[in-house]
Design a protein around this nucleic acid. Structure first.
Length: 135
RNA sequence: AAUGCAAGCCGUUCUAUCGCUGCGAACUCGUUUCGGAGAGGAAAGUCCGGGCAACAUAGAGCAUCUCGCUUCCUAACGGGAAGAGGUUCAGGAAUGAAUACCUGCAUCAUGGAAAGUGCCACAGAAAGCACACCGCCGAUGGCUCAAGGCACAGGUAAGGUUGAAAACGUGAGGUAAGAGCUCACGAUUGUUCCGGGAGACCGGAAGAUUUGUAAACCCCGGGAGUUGAAAGACCAAAUAGGCUAACGCAUGUAGGGCUGCUCGUUCGAUGUUAGUGGGUAGGUCGUUAGAGAUAAAUGGCAACAUUUAUACUGGAUUAAUGAUAGAAGUCUAAUUUUAUUGGAUACAGAACCCGGCUUAUAGGCUUGCAUUUUUU
């Protein structure tokens, strides 16, 4: 399903603080991604927050455009590239996607880059998991 | 018709697929189906003014900030309307000439310089009670027998130089030379009188003639309590702990206080059940029907007011109102000739709500004024 309801978005201020203080992160231009696994069970495996900083983009119109494009791409790709590949567990993945590009790119660029982000994220998750599994 | 200026208005549309946030309806009550709604003229800047809310508050004064021609409009304003006056520019007419007259456009933080203090660089003799540099005169008095402007007293702001600004302007009389000293035409006036106007002010007569600066301090008059929807009101899970009651447990126990110790005395858990206040996550309200919009009539020069009629769902809260593809429209360039191809399609995104101001804005429309050209 290509839905993107409120349940899939990260809205709680506490969770967001937790994510940015304790989560791991990597940069894959033009996105900065932060993520954190927590034990709280949830209806969806991932909650995401999409972000474009006011410091970087002064105009509200620009920020809206960035967030809308990112959200649209995420909505269309998440099921096939993220949800299906993620290992089933009680854990919830908190995710932040922050746009840090120097300019605003067109839709196809977003499509390509975000799919790269998903691949790297899944790779990082399995690497993080494996040592803990050994212990 | 074109161009320019000013004012006002509009500021892309349709289809398909996949979504987001409210609302309504249906039932098989599922984050199911159907229906319908979903950014602006500035939503912006947060520069003013209000509503609303909490807190503060006897009254008065001082300080601080702010506003400043008049009348009116408004909930209010630093906003708006209509006027008054000044300044600049243009045109016209008059005069011997002019700073004077008339008309129009633009523009002005436009209270007070006669309450006081200060400042006015450079230049210049002098920058405000004219300490006379050059010049003019030397009538009157002095020197001298006399003549004589005489490095005598003195008179003089007409002329010169400087400057942003030079002591009312121009002309005539007058005089030794000059001077509002006198006169004519003007200028200014916070002096008096008369007349007009609601008032700012205007007109007339008489009198007077000591620059500018208050966006220097200052004086006068009006206004301002503080904070800002993260205001504020309410509901409230789980967990932990607080309090109360009952039961249970003990010879009132374990343990503690008083004491050097003992006695004595005093405090007194841990469990179970029920109740309860505070309060966290989270949620609800505040929150979108209004000092509102549109139209007509009436009153008013106008801003605006009154009456009647009509229609009325943006409401998010890590923050919706979208994404992609195609087509059309508009503007524009080239090819070439009336259709192709390319490009452009602005400024910009509600965050409690209103009234203003300011700033940004592709393109289009309407009205008015000015100029040019064509036709009659």
């Amino acid at each position: 399903m290509n839905t993107f309801t409120k349940e899939e978005r990260l809205c709680s201020r506490k969770s967001i603080d937790l994510l940015f203080n304790n989560g791991s992160s990597f940069l894959l231009y033009p996105f900065r991604v932060s993520y954190l696994l927590i034990e709280t069970p949830h209806k969806f495996p991932v909650q995401v927050v999409i972000n474009a900083s006011k410091k970087r983009y002064k105009k509200a119109v620009d920020r809206n455009l960035i967030k809308r494009r990112t959200r649209e791409v995420y909505r269309l790709q998440k099921q096939s590239q993220l949800y299906d590949s993620i290992p089933k567990s009680d854990k919830l993945l908190l995710l932040s996607v922050q746009f840090v590009g120097k300019q605003i790119y067109d839709y196809s660029f977003f499509e390509k880059k975000l799919s790269g982000v998903f691949k790297k994220l899944l790779n990082n998750l399995t690497v993080d998991d494996s040592p803990s599994a050994n212990l």
